[in-house]
Design a protein around this nucleic acid. Sequence first.
RNA 1: GGGUUCGUAGCCUAGCCUGGUAGGGCGAUGGUCUCCAAAACCAUCGAUCGUCGGUUCAAAUCCGAUCGGGCCCA
Length: 370
Amino acid sequence: MSADEFIVTPWHVEGDIDYDKLIEKFGTEKISPELREKIKNLTNEDHFMLRRGIFFSHREMNRILEDYEKGIEFFLYTGRGPSGHTHIGHLVPWMFAKWLQEKFDVNLYFQLTDDEKFYSKTDLTLEETSKYAYENALDFIALGFNPEKTKIIINTKNIQTLYPIAAQVAKKINFSNTKATFGFTNETNIGMIFYTSLQSAPCFIEDKPVLIPLGVDQDPHFRLTRDIAQKIGKQKPALIHNIMVPALTGPGGKMSASEEKGTIYTTDTPDIVKKKINKYAFSGGQPDIEQHRKLGGNPDIDVSYQYLRIFFEPDDAKLKKIYEDYKSGKLLSGELKAILIEKINEFLKTHQEKREKAKQQIEQFLLKNK
RNA sequence: GGGUUCGUAGCCUAGCCUGGUAGGGCGAUGGUCUCCAAAACCAUCGAUCGUCGGUUCAAAUCCGAUCGGGCCCA
C-alpha cells in the first residue's frame, strides 16, 4: 500500500489516513470554526477533542443545534462491537458522548452489537461476544453516565425492542445497497446483510432527532440509515465523527481489540502499561540522542504524543510545552513515554475502581424490553 | 436434495497428479543498534499436514467415511 492509500470500512482500517480526503470520499462535512463556536456557546466549554480536531467531521450536527435552540430536544446514540476487551481507543467517542449528555442533559443509548461481531468474526461464538458485551458495558458505565438518562442495548437481549424498527428499515434497503456500501459478496453470510438495519434501529427508538458521536469508520452504516430515513417517515440521524486512534506500533491502522501488543486495555496493570509503551510505542524521535538534541523529534507521528493529544492531556498549555520540547529536542522519546505512562496509569487507576463499582450498577443501565 | 471446491504452524501458502515422516512468506520471540520505538542485521521458536479408518515396508500425498468452510444448481 503506497503512502497516500488507505482503507476505512466498519470492519477494516488500514494505512495512513488522510482525513481531508476521507471527508471528500465519504461526503461528510468538516467541522467548521463556526460550528465549533456554536457548540462552545451552547455548552460553555470548548472541548479539547473539538479544538484539536479529534472530532473532525459531521453530518448535520448544525441542524441538531439549531433545533435545540428552538427547544427541540435530541438524544444521543453510540455503541461498540464487542469483539474483545475495551481499549483506550474505544473510550474516545464514549467520553465525548458523556460530555454531550452532561452539557445538553439528554438521553443516551449505547448499543452493544454482540450479534454483529458473531457474524463478522469467524472464530467468535455468540457466548463470547455476549461476554465481551458485558465487559465493555462495565467500561462504559465507569465513565460516569447518568443512569436516569442512559440505556445500554444488547442486541441479542433487546431484539424484541429493536426488531419492529429494524424491520421498517430492512424493507427499504436492498441487497445492492449493502453490497455497494460494505463490499459484500456471495460469501457474506445473511446475518451481515441484515445487520445494518439493527444498527439503524436505535436511531428511531425515540421520536426525536438523534446525534451519533462515533468513529468515522462506522459512518457507512448511517449513510444507509440517512438514505432511508424519510422513506419510513423519520428524520435523518446526525453524526459527529472522531479520528481513528492509532495502534501503539504505528500510524498505519487503528488500535485493534485483537492485537495484544499494539493495544492498551482498560484492564492493564501499571506494569503492563509501562512495558507496552516502552517496548512498542512508535516514536518520532531521532536515531540517537545527539541527533535528537540537534534535530528534534516529530510529535506528529509520535504515537505517545498522539495519545496525549487525543485523550490523556486535556491541558493545552501542558500539551503545547510537550510538543515544543519534543520538537526542539529538549525532550527525549523515553521521557515523553514516561509522561504518557504516568498519565495512562493515573487514568486507569480510577477507571478500574469505577469499573468494579459498575458491576453493581449494570442492572439499572440495561434496557428493559417492553 | 444434486454438483463442485477447499481444509498444511497465529495468518497466507508450496508440496498432493509421478507415495519415503513438510519448504517459503508475513507474524512472533531473543539479540545487536537506539534515550525509546521503527528500520536494518543476526538468531530462535513454531505444523504429527481437519478427524477417523483402509491400502502400503512407508501417506500431507492413494482409497473410504466423517466434520467444517466456500461457490453453483434445485
